[in-house]
Design a protein around this nucleic acid. Structure first.
Lengths: 200, 200
DNA sequence: CTTGTTATATATCGATCGATCTATTATTAT
DNA sequence: ATAATAATAGATCGATCGATATATAACAAG
């Protein structure tokens, strides 16, 4: 019983996401956002309250569509937990090497952005911790099935692999050399007897 | 043959550094900078050209005083290259755990800041690559002296350890838990037979 | 003391920032 | 048809942004 929206949230948030991703939060102006979304500031504020609220919605969608809804559940359903771990790194490496998307990870960029308010930082921590939780769960599955080198501690190994994720995503923005990124990932997977290469 | 400066560059850049470090480049205004330095915008522009020029000078001093001038040369002079590597991680871990300094690394924060111009990004890459070069040099020294596990490739190990540095510094801002940071560093040093603990 | 040079402060520039007010449009429910 | 509701555009708000023009202050060299 109201006027219908001319731009749906998904398309709107995707366009805003690309701006925030490339330029950062502070460097992306309302003017940039209205130009990209073809919507007035009034319309944006009616939906999201303010710029920070829009940004948080962008972050949520970024994390949800990128990880929570698609990638992680699919990987967790794999019979072999080692494939789940390798699959995550394969996806993140491919994303880091892609030229169609801005380099680096929007969540990690935001984690290092000192201008982010506490609500935003909290959201970032929550979503990034889901990645580590995924790794820990798969490593525990793998350990229970004796698929890991003896003495491997799932919780500690998950922290180390999560660190590898952070390094990968930072390096993707710092020096996006696909060869180097692959080398880094392989070196971090090797101690667990894992590799990106499918037939090895 | 000219009017003397009322504030020396070192003190000025230190105060500006703390602002950029905590808030980021875009979120730090000229007003913030003039308040902190007790200098007018005209004086700042006379010295540094513009805000970006001031920021680059801050970055240079940050990298020089933190790494190039003091830490790395002292470590490189140690007789045992393993002590040099461990010493670097000990210093970075202590810095990451300190509450007297803003969390995280200004260079890495800037690397992920999409608003940085190319001159700034180039400076960041150059200074961070010095860290990896240091690690590579020490690992080569160690390999030559047969101080590393057999088969260790210095260049690859340096990339992995540099990744650990990135992860450490990101995690310091994301979740600055000293216990966790130490655990991460130890886990990354262990494969090379190294440890932070001096008597082990 | 004068001249030249540099550092600084004050005042202010136009532009742009995020945000809001008012009015209008498009829809559903009655 | 009419009323109620929500979405949007257009205009504009005061504040603040980075930057600059002008004038003054403090020193060294002659």
């Amino acid at each position: 019983m109201a006027r219908p929206r001319t731009v749906d949230d998904d398309a709107l948030l995707d366009r805003a996401r690309d701006l925030f991703w490339r330029q950062g939060y502070a460097a992306t102006s309302l003017r940039d956002l209205t130009d990209a979304t073809r919507l007035s500031t009034a319309a944006l504020y009616n939906r999201f309250g303010d710029k920070s609220g829009l940004f948080r919605e962008v972050l949520r969608r970024y994390a949800d569509t990128g990880l929570r809804d698609q990638l992680l559940p699919g990987l967790a359903a794999l019979p072999d937990p080692r494939d789940a771990i390798v699959g995550l790194f394969a996806a993140l490496t491919a994303l880091s090497c892609s030229t169609e998307t801005p380099s680096g990870c929007l969540l990690i960029n935001t984690a290092l952005d000192g201008a982010a308010d506490e609500a935003t930082r909290s959201l970032v921590r929550e979503r990034l911790s889901e990645v580590e939780a995924f790794l820990r769960a798969q490593l525990e599955r793998a350990k229970a099935a004796s698929l890991l080198p003896p003495g491997t501690e799932p919780s500690l190994a998950a922290e180390v692999l999560f660190g590898a994720v952070l390094a990968l995503r930072v390096l993707a923005r710092l020096d996006p050399d696909p060869v180097r990124l692959h080398r880094l990932v392989e070196a971090n997977l090797a101690p667990l007897g894992l590799t990106l290469k499918p037939g090895a």
